[in-house]
């Protein structure tokens, strides 16, 4: 990967095992600061596990992870997770309204979110204020994912981790979310790491890409590598997915 960029997150020979199974196998690599890096690869490659390592929901069995050049283990866990936010694939919601969910990150710190602020965050993700008091079980898949993204923005994190946030959505919602992520990236100047199955998405939205297979980092570089992969396994994978 182009080393002229300062890394937001750096992996140094990171290994992660669970129940005697090695899920991440000695990965070394960086996610450039202020850029969108997509994480692609077949199911079971260890992509979600890798994201969970980035915000401390899991810890490496071996190796070192640096966040802004500082060892991840030196961060206090709750502070780390506010600095490196994660939008989960299923966009889970707590019982209640959209407002209850938007207010959640603040309430966890004993602070309040005003209605005006909530409306602003909703607008940032392309939802109007009529959604504020809507129960979350009345939202469509796309709306739910947008609320989840808005909720992730509230901690004003420097790094956003997105776990297949468009995988269960219809074509129109996918496009809306893609535009939304590009806008958020510009507006908040955040580093984004985005797991996607959609290689077209990786090419158009991502600046860089990591291709993972079977717990290993097989190839990294600018997203255009997906057009002409050097590694034969990556070439086979890309062909199978049909860019």
């Amino acid at each position: 990967m182009n080393t002229s960029y300062e890394p937001a997150i750096h992996f140094q020979q990171v290994t992660f095992s669970s129940n005697d199974k090695m899920i991440i196998k000695s990965i070394t690599g960086s996610f450039p600061k202020g850029k969108i890096t997509t994480l692609v690869g077949p199911s079971g490659a260890g992509k979600t596990t890798l994201l969970k390592l980035c915000n401390g929901l899991s810890s490496p069995t071996d190796g070192q992870i640096l966040i802004d050049n500082q060892a991840i283990s030196t961060y206090e866990p709750t502070a780390l997770r506010r600095y490196v936010s994660m939008a989960l694939q299923a966009a889970p919601m707590i019982e209640g309204t959209v407002f209850d969910n938007l207010a959640l990150p603040r309430s966890l710190q004993g602070e309040k979110l005003t209605e005006q602020e909530a409306i602003q965050y909703l607008q940032d993700v392309g939802l109007d204020q009529s959604f504020l008091q809507r129960p979350t079980n009345k939202l469509s898949g796309g709306q739910r994912q947008k609320v989840s993204i808005a909720r992730t923005l509230i901690n004003q994190s420097s790094i956003l981790l997105l776990d297949e946030i468009t995988s269960a959505l219809d074509r129109q919602s996918v496009q809306e979310i893609e535009t939304l992520i590009a806008t958020i990236h510009k507006k908040f100047n955040v580093t984004i790491i985005w797991i996607t199955h959609n290689l077209q998405q990786a090419l158009t939205i991502g600046h860089y890409t990591w291709v993972m297979m079977d717990g290993e980092l097989i190839e990294t570089g600018e997203s255009s590598l997906l057009n002409a992969p050097k590694n034969p396994r990556v070439a086979e994978f890309v062909q199978g997915v049909n860019v």
Partner: peptide, 20 residues
Amino acid sequence: QNEIELILSLGGTPKQAIHR
């Protein structure tokens, strides 16, 4: 489990995550 991980990932403590 998703809900518990959600609260942890938003910077909540274990007590907050498991409260419900």
